[in-house]
Design a protein around this nucleic acid. Structure first.
Lengths: 206, 206
DNA sequence: TCCAAGATATCACAGCTGTGATATAAAAGT
DNA sequence: ACTTTTATATCACAGCTGTGATATCTTGGA
C-alpha cells in the first residue's frame, strides 16, 4: 500500500514549484510564501519539509545540479558505445553532448535560466557558493572529457592546449546560454547550435 | 563661485555608492537605505535626487553602460590612428580592445560584477530590460567592428562568417567575464587574456 | 482502541522594504 | 530684505520577509 504522501515526491514538487517561480519572476521573488502558493501548499506544510529558506534554496540548487549532471553522464555513457564514427559524425556527436547545456528547447531553457539566477546569487550568498563551484568544476570536467575523446580519435587539430580549449569552450557555452536566455531576440536556439558547431569545426583538423 | 552642492556630482556619488553595495552584497541588497548609508546620506537626501528605487537603479545601470561605452569608443578611436601594423601586433591590439570588457583589474572586475547582476535582474525587471538590450546590442556592434577591422587588413582567415564569429566572440567574452567573476579560483585575469588571445589567434590566417 | 508520529494550518513578531507626507534649514534670485 | 527653490532630515504606514511557537487533523503501528 502506497503511503498517502511520499515525502520525497513532496520535496520534489516543491522544488519544481520554486523553479517555476524563478523562471517567471526571478530567484529574488522565490520566498517561502510565493513558492508555497505556487506549489498549492500552506506555508506551514512547506516548512514541514523545508524548515528554512536556506534549506529550500540549497536543496533546489543541488537538485538542479544533480539532474543536469545525471543527464550529462547518461549522454556520455550512451555516446561511448557508438564511437567508432567518421570524423564528421564525431563532431556532430560532440555538438549534441554540449548542446545539453544550451537553452535549445523549453525545458533546457528553464534549466539554464534557473542556473543563471542561482549562479549570480551564489556570488554573494555563502549558502550557495560551494554548490556553484561544484557545478562549475563538474561542467569543466564534462567539457574536457568531450575534448579529450575527440583528441584521442585524432579529430582535433594538433597543438591545441587542452586547458585553454576547455575553458574557452566552457565559457563559450556559458556565454551562449546566458545571452540566449537574456536576449532571445538576439540569440536563438539554432544560433547557439550554429555557433557551437562552428567552434568545434574550427577546433577540428583541417 | 562654486555651488555648495553640485547635483550632478551628488548623483554620481550615489551611483558609486550603489556600485559598491552591489559588488559587496549584490543588487538584491541595494535598497534605498543601504545605498544611502553607503553614500553617507540621509535617505531623505537621497530621495531628493532619486525619487524612487526604480529611478535610482535605472540611472545607475545607464551610467554604467555609458561609462563602458565611452571607454570603448575612446579605445577604438585611439587605435584607429596607429593601425598600419604587422599582423601580430594587430591581433594584440584586438586583445587590448576586447580586454576592456574583461575583469583583468580591480576596477574592471567591479564593472563586470555590476553588469552581471544588472543583466540577471533585467530578465524579470521590466524597468531594466531596454537598458540590457541596448548594452547587448552595443557590445555586439563593438565586437563586430573589431572583427571587421581585422578583416579589412586581411588578418582573418578567409571564409569566416562575420555574424557567427561576432556572436561567438561576444558570447565568449561574456562567458569569460562571468566565470572570472564567479569563480576567480578557476579563471584568473591572465587566463582570460590567454584564452582571448588563443581565440583571436585561431581566427587569424594561418 | 490508543498512542505516537507525521502532516497541515494559523497566529504572532521583529525586521526590512518603498514611498507618501511633512518639517526644517540653507542657499539663490530679485 | 523677502521670496522661492533647493537640500537635509523625520515620521508614519502598509506590505512583504523569515521564523518561532502552537494548534488541529490524519495516518500508521501496537
Amino acid at each position: 500500500m502506497p503511503k498517502v504522501v511520499d515525502p520525497v515526491e513532496r520535496r520534489h514538487a516543491v522544488v519544481d514549484a520554486l523553479f517555476r517561480v524563478v523562471v517567471r519572476d526571478g530567484l529574488q521573488r522565490a520566498s517561502l510564501r510565493t513558492v508555497a502558493a505556487e506549489a498549492q501548499l500552506n506555508i506551514g506544510s512547506l516548512r514541514h519539509y523545508f524548515a528554512t529558506h536556506e534549506e529550500l534554496t540549497r536543496f533546489a540548487m543541488a537538485s538542479m545540479i544533480e539532474r543536469v549532471g545525471g543527464r550529462l553522464r547518461a549522454s556520455v555513457d550512451e555516446a561511448g558505445d557508438l564511437a567508432a564514427l567518421p570524423p564528421a559524425d564525431l563532431l556532430e556527436l560532440a555538438v549534441r553532448l554540449l548542446g545539453e547545456l544550451l537553452p535549445i528547447d523549453e525545458s533546457r531553457r528553464a534549466e539554464v535560466t534557473v542556473f543563471l539566477d542561482f549562479a549570480a546569487a551564489s556570488r554573494t550568498d555563502p549558502a550557495l557558493r560551494d554548490l556553484a563551484e561544484r557545478a562549475a568544476v563538474g561542467m569543466r570536467g564534462f567539457v574536457r572529457l568531450v575534448l579529450e575523446r575527440l583528441g584521442s580519435r585524432d579529430a582535433l587539430r594538433p597543438g591545441v592546449r587542452i586547458d585553454v580549449e576547455t575553458e574557452r569552450l566552457a565559457s563559450l557555452v556559458d556565454g551562449l546560454g546566458m545571452n540566449a536566455v537574456l536576449h532571445p531576440e538576439l540569440v536563438s536556439a539554432s544560433d547557439c547550435l550554429d555557433i557551437l558547431r562552428a567552434h568545434l569545426g574550427a577546433l577540428a583538423c583541417p
